[in-house]
Design a protein around this nucleic acid. Structure first.
Length: 475
RNA sequence: GUCCCUAUCGUCUAGUUGGCCCAGGACACCGCGCUUUCAAUGCGGCAACACGGGUUCGAAUCCCGUUGGGGACGCCA
């Protein structure tokens, strides 16, 4: 029996949960669920000046939206400060780290190139001297002493990676204010939390040797590593604000379904190795494997996300769709309250194949829910310009008014008969009426639309169309 | 600047140990059918192994180089 798989997602609360972070969380989550292991949430808030509680909440919210539940945590590094200090002290005692009494560099010159340990006078301070100065109250940071040789590790995604230690700097473990840096806290926590697999973004590849050196210095067994290729914007540059939304909650707001977003994200940098793409969470959990993770960075493109979303929308249960629609209409303040559930569901059934986002209901398909809507300009110009309409529409309106029973058949028969008598093509009227009824040049079948709107509204809108034809010149 | 990583259609990708790949699927795009417009659907099309050297009977698959892209080099994570 192998030991339990334990993975973690460890964001720093200096921003919202962004697309890249979400994908990292997602792969960790999938990995844990696949092996029946634990998914642990840890907040890396050791940079006090940049961390905030709202950001923590935002991250949790994003994870919840995507349905990623965690088994342990959230743990906060800010609450484990004593542990890191204790650890750093041990390292100093062991001689693998040393106190550095140099003044902290200003941020502005932080772009400096690696400083070799030899360049730090502090590195060669005797432990007596070092201890004496510390006891005297001299301010110091703790630096790790980089040993000579090379460091290598096997990555589950990238394979064997080796670096020469000489390029590594004697990095800081503990700042002069006593707070730990990332390298210290991440190693201590992964050890204490018994993390078996560190799955994180490829931007951490070059940090890994430092952490491995730390594990080696204290003689502990290290976790396995798997680095994930990065997600880039359409210009192949790092995803940033100028690419539009980067926070996952923004996508919630844009009307994307969490399941669709989840599915889409899972296929960014990973492939099940077969030709299926629409996969449920359960299927994803079963299929997920680090072997399927690619090495090349992936571009985050919206077209395919839209497609995924439309697939999930069309496959949504009537109940789920109903609920989403009600929410959407409410939030966009469209007064649809006089609709029966049946009416609403009928409309949704008519529209669901054409939805890309739930928000389309209140934008493109507004006319189905509200009497206040405009004719889409290009549609009106294209379909309302025929001068014959001015004479035809009033007559046709009259026929619809007189219709005995308003059904799909009768609605169509009235029009068919009418065009036959008048000797005009059905398309002229159908297209014009479509604009009149929906404001759009593109919509579901006209007679189905009539039924969905109901007799009264249909007649009222034809009447309105009649009026507009008289007062507007369409071209 | 130094180090690390990476490179298949516009995009996401398949391509397990080199031959079944003059490279498959999906999105997008284009055409045709259906039709009342569009969507949906069906069928079809466009479109890639970055480049140059090797190794091999044979390379998208292995090696080297070039170029492109990304990442890291902080008392940020």
């Amino acid at each position: 029996m192998t030991k339990e798989v334990r993975v973690r997602f460890a964001p720093s609360p200096t921003g919202y949960l962004h697309v890249g972070g979400a994908r990292t969380a997602l792969f960790n989550w999938l990995f844990a669920r696949h092996f029946g292991g634990k998914f642990i949430l840890r907040i890396e808030d050791t940079d006090f000046s940049r961390s905030s509680e709202e950001m923590v909440e935002g991250i949790l919210q994003g994870l919840r939206w995507l349905g990623m539940t965690w088994d342990e945590g959230p743990f906060f590094q800010s609450q484990r400060l004593d542990r890191y200090r204790e650890f750093a002290a041990e390292l100093v005692a062991k001689g693998v780290a040393y106190r550095c009494f140099c003044k902290a560099k200003e941020n502005s010159e932080a772009s400096g190139y690696p400083t070799k340990s030899a360049e730090h006078g502090c590195a060669s301070l005797s432990s007596d001297e070092s201890g004496r100065r510390a006891a005297a109250g001299d301010c110091f940071a703790v630096r790790f002493r980089i040993p000579p040789d090379k460091t290598s590790f096997r990555d589950h995604v990238f394979g064997d990676i080796e670096v020469d230690n000489t390029i590594l700097e004697d990095f800081v473990l503990l700042r002069s204010d006593g707070s730990p840096t990332y390298h210290l806290s991440v190693v201590v926590d992964d050890l204490d939390m018994k993390i078996t697999h560190v799955i994180r973004g490829a931007d951490h590849i070059s940090n890994t040797p430092k952490q491995i050196l730390l594990y080696q210095a204290i003689g502990e067994q290290m976790p396995e590593f798997a680095h994930l290729p990065l997600i880039l914007g359409p210009d192949k540059q790092r995803l940033s604000k100028r690419h539009g939304a980067t926070s996952v909650m923004a996508y919630a707001g844009l009307g994307y379904l969490p399941d669709a977003f989840f599915n889409f994200l899972s296929l960014l940098g990973w492939s099940p190795g077969e030709d299926r793409e629409i996969l449920s969470r359960q299927e994803l959990i079963e299929l997920f494997s680090l072997k399927g993770v690619g090495k090349a960075n992936a571009v985050f493109g919206l077209e395919k996300l839209d497609w995924f979303n439309s697939q999930y929308l069309r496959n949504a249960s009537p109940d789920a769709l109903h609920q989403m629609a009600v929410e959407e209409l409410k939030s966009s303040q469209i007064p649809f309250t006089n609709f029966s559930a049946e009416t609403l569901d009928g409309i949704l059934d008519l529209l669901k194949n054409r939805l890309r986002k739930i928000g389309d209901l209140s934008s493109t398909w507004r006319a189905f829910f509200s009497d206040e809507f405009e004719y889409e300009k290009s549609a009106a110009d294209k379909f309302l310009a025929d001068p014959k309409l001015r004479d035809l529409i009033p007559e046709l309106l009259d026929r619809y008014r007189k219709i005995a029973e308003f059904t799909l058949e009768s609605a169509e028969t009235v029009l068919r008969k009418f065009v036959e008598e008048k000797g005009v093509k059905a398309g002229i009227l159908i297209n014009a009426l479509r604009v009149g009824l929906t404001g759009q040049g593109v919509a579901p079948g006209l007679f189905e639309v009539m039924l969905a709107l109901g007799r009264e509204r249909t007649i009222a809108r034809i009447d309105q169309l009649n009026t507009k034809l008289r007062i507007t010149n369409y071209e």
